[in-house]
Every structure is written in structure tokens, then in C-alpha cells.
Design a protein around this nucleic acid. Structure first.
Lengths: 150, 150
DNA sequence: CTATAATGATTCGATATCGCACTAAACAAT
DNA sequence: ATTGTTTAGTGCGATATCGAATCATTATAG
């Protein structure tokens, strides 16, 4: 295969991915109140799924974002009382991030509001298609992630 | 299929997409000089592929971005002399965006610099996998795009 | 034709992202 | 114990994103 063909193939891939990323962000944003963005919601999801009590640095690494960005995002979540920042008992420099009751409830509410849109999607696209696409994406993601480090 | 399963399936999908979107943006950003971002580069690509002379509004719609964002991005490109903004002969309120020689050359250079990374990827992932994934993504994107309007 | 509405682009203010520099705490090496 | 290095988090400045309001031009209605 020519280099040109390869390039345009991957440009197509990344173009589709970019568009869907934007569309899915829009879906979530529609459900969020003013003052809270995708960035905030993703952190809530993350803490709920993988457990809270993590440090800000660990979270910023999980999202591969600069820690200054995470400081800002966590600050917003704390202002809205969706998380609590407590000192890290194991390291005086560090903090631990905990979901509050309100944070849990908020996450659940947003996910519930999201459900109709996603369930509608699931009626429009065969499940096999989604599963196969996820499999392909996961492979691509793993390799790109591995390449990133060298 | 339960609603819960459906939700987590689509969350997985969008999660993979979000990560790859971030990784591919990073690939491009590595090749861009300070002062020019993905946003700028994507506009150059767009003008080269689909033809220049478009209005700012048309471009902002193509990317589904607010027109104020596009004003800002185009302003940056103009400062770097990668595009020219000329009055629209068909509408006194409007402008047309044209690639300069420098803009063309810049696009070509960046794409060339990007090539090694993408060609490496193409040696790591079977082409069929990429093609199938693109097909799946395109279907998902089309349906989400259509849903967006109602 | 004139008055009104709609449209393309910009300005402005608010928030987000991110690199750089800084502080405080922990760790490492003697 | 002391000193130098590394690490966690934050403050700050630059740029990006985006909604609301504004200005100029065009389209529409009567």
C-alpha cells in the first residue's frame, strides 16, 4: 500500500473519531447544568467506577491531562460539593479525592437522563456493530498508547 | 438487553473514542510549531481537501463549532499568513477564506512529518481492522448526526 | 420605497486548558 | 542529621472555547 493511501486511511479514521467524540460530548453536555462540563462529569464517572480516595495526580494521569488542569477541574467539583478533598494520610504533600453523597446522586441523575438517548441509539445500530467497533478501537488505542511511550 | 448493559456498552464505546481522539490530537500537536494548534491545522486540511474560498460561517458549520471560535482560529491562521481573508463578492457582510502559498506548503510539511508515525501504525495494525473500524464508526456517526437534528 | 427581520462577522466577558515556576513535603546519599 | 533531588499540588499568564450582545448588510413585508 502506498504511503499516501495509508495516510488518508488514518486521516479518515481519526476524522470519524473526532466527530463522534464531539457528538458524544454534546450528548453529555446537554444534560449538564451550567457551571459543570464534561471534564467534571468524567471525573465523577471515573471516581465512581474505579473507586474514590485517589490523589489528584493519579486522576490526571488516568486522563492523561496536565495536573494543573485537574486542579482546576477538582476545584470546580469541590465548589459544587460533588467531591471532598482530604489530606492524604500517607503523604503530607498529597490529597485524596472522595465522592460526596451529592456527587454520587448527581452522577446517577445525569446517567439516568442520558439513558433515553443511548437506548434510542441502541435501537438504531445493531449491537454486533458496536461490539466489533469497540474491539477494533481498543486494539488501535492499545497500540497508540504503547507507541506514545517510546 | 438490559438498559444498564446498553449504557455501559455505549460508555465503553465513547470512552475508547475519547481516548483515541486525544492520542491522535497529541500526534498532530507534536508536529505543530508553537502558536498553531490542532484547531488551526484542521482548518487548513479542510480548505485543502474541500476547496478554499469558503466563508467563515460555512467552515464553522462544517466543524460544528460556534462561529466565534472560528473567527478566533481564522484570525490566528491569518496572522501566520497561512490564509487570506477577502471580501465576499456575493455578500457584503461576508468574507471568503483562501489558502496562501505558505498555507499550502505548511499543510504539506506537517503531513509529511506526520507520515512516519502513521506508517508505523499501519505496520502494527492489519489494514482490515482499520477499514472495518472506520465502517462501523461511519455508521455510528451518521446516525448520531441525524439524531442531533430532532 | 420603507420598515422590519434575518444573517455574517466581530467584540466582549466567562470559563477551560496548559506550560512554567514555586512551595512544601518526602526521599536519597552520605 | 544535612544537603540535594524528586514529587504533589497550586498560582499565574497565555491562549482556546463559547454564549450574549453588537454592527453592518441583506432579505422580506407591506
Amino acid at each position: 500500500m502506498t504511503a499516501d493511501k495509508t495516510l488518508s486511511l488514518y486521516f479518515s479514521l481519526f476524522n470519524e473519531i473526532g466527530i463522534i467524540s464531539q457528538l458524544s460530548s454534546a450528548l453529555v453536555n446537554e444534560q449538564l447544568p451550567k457551571g459543570l462540563s464534561n471534564a467534571h462529569f468524567n471525573v465523577l464517572i471515573h471516581l465512581d467506577r474505579l473507586g474514590d480516595g485517589q490523589t489528584p495526580l493519579a486522576i490526571s494521569r488516568a486522563f492523561q491531562l496536565p495536573k494543573t488542569t485537574m486542579t482546576h477541574t477538582l476545584c470546580g467539583l469541590e465548589t459544587h460539593q460533588l467531591i471532598e478533598m482530604r489530606p492524604n494520610p500517607k503523604d503530607g504533600r498529597s490529597k485524596c479525592v472522595w465522592l460526596t453523597q451529592k456527587g454520587h446522586a448527581f452522577r446517577n441523575k445525569i446517567i439516568n437522563n442520558l439513558a433515553p438517548d443511548l437506548i434510542k441509539l441502541s435501537t438504531q445500530i445493531p449491537q454486533d456493530r458496536i461490539l466489533n467497533t469497540i474491539t477494533g478501537l481498543a486494539e488501535i488505542r492499545k497500540i497508540m498508547d504503547a507507541n506514545r511511550e517510546d
